[in-house]
């Protein structure tokens, strides 16, 4: 019978740092978790020696970096929105880990969808903008409201993809 390939310290750390649930299991039963994950002997001794608070701090650093990137991409959804907060993001970050060089855009879009599923109001324009930048849609037409002479008036916003990570927006009608 073929022996399973043993996991290196890099693979084990990647598993732990990308998933808060796994990290919790490891902290509560290190030896059991390392057995279940077929740790190689060097990785086993390296991981057994790391203080739990250091692992939690490193995961906190990774999640904080994602949170900062998401906030930069979502100024409209985050402004003055108490539901759109770090605690919700951490709950979401335990379930999804984005990949690739457009990971921040993917992360932001997935987080907006997560917020919607929790009934938290988010900007539809930012969802549309991210879908265009990620190449998931070629254009969007959205009804929006414009403030003019102290009153909110309905308008239409046409958005279209112009290339990777970019889109253009035109206010095509003010009714």
């Amino acid at each position: 019978m073929r022996q399973p390939e043993l996991a290196t310290e890099q693979v084990l750390l990647a598993r732990l740092l990308s998933d808060g649930g796994r990290l919790g299991s490891f902290i509560s039963d290190r030896a059991g978790w390392l057995d279940d994950n077929a740790a190689d002997p060097a990785a086993r001794s390296a991981l057994l020696a790391i203080p739990a608070e250091d692992l939690l701090a490193q995961r906190g650093t990774l999640v904080a970096k994602r949170w900062r990137a998401v906030l930069e991409l979502l100024p409209e959804s985050s402004f003055g929105n108490p539901g759109f907060c770090r605690a919700i993001f951490e709950d979401y970050a335990d379930r999804y880990w984005p990949e690739g060089h457009m990971r921040h855009e993917r992360d932001a879009l997935a987080f907006l969808q997560f917020c919607q599923s929790k009934g938290i109001a988010v900007s539809r324009v930012e969802i549309a903008r991210l879908e265009l930048r990620l190449g998931l849609r070629r254009f969007h037409i959205l009804p929006v409201r414009l403030s003019r002479r102290g009153r909110l008036r309905p308008a239409l916003l046409l958005m279209h993809r112009t290339g990777p990570r970019s889109c253009r927006e035109h206010l095509i009608a003010s009714l």
């Binding site: 996991a7 290196t8 310290e9 890099q10 693979v11 750390l13 990647a14 598993r15 740092l17 990308s18 060097a42 390296a46 490193q58 650093t61 990774l62 970096k65 994602r66 880990w97 984005p98 990949e99 690739g100 990971r103």
Partner: peptide, 21 residues
């Protein structure tokens, strides 16, 4: 550093133990 391993892209720099391997 490493940023990815085992099919997971952490998207951030992570340390390695200073071993010969």
């Amino acid at each position: 550093a490493f940023t990815r391993a085992g099919g997971i892209d952490l998207g951030h720099l992570n340390p390695l133990s200073p071993t010969r391997a």
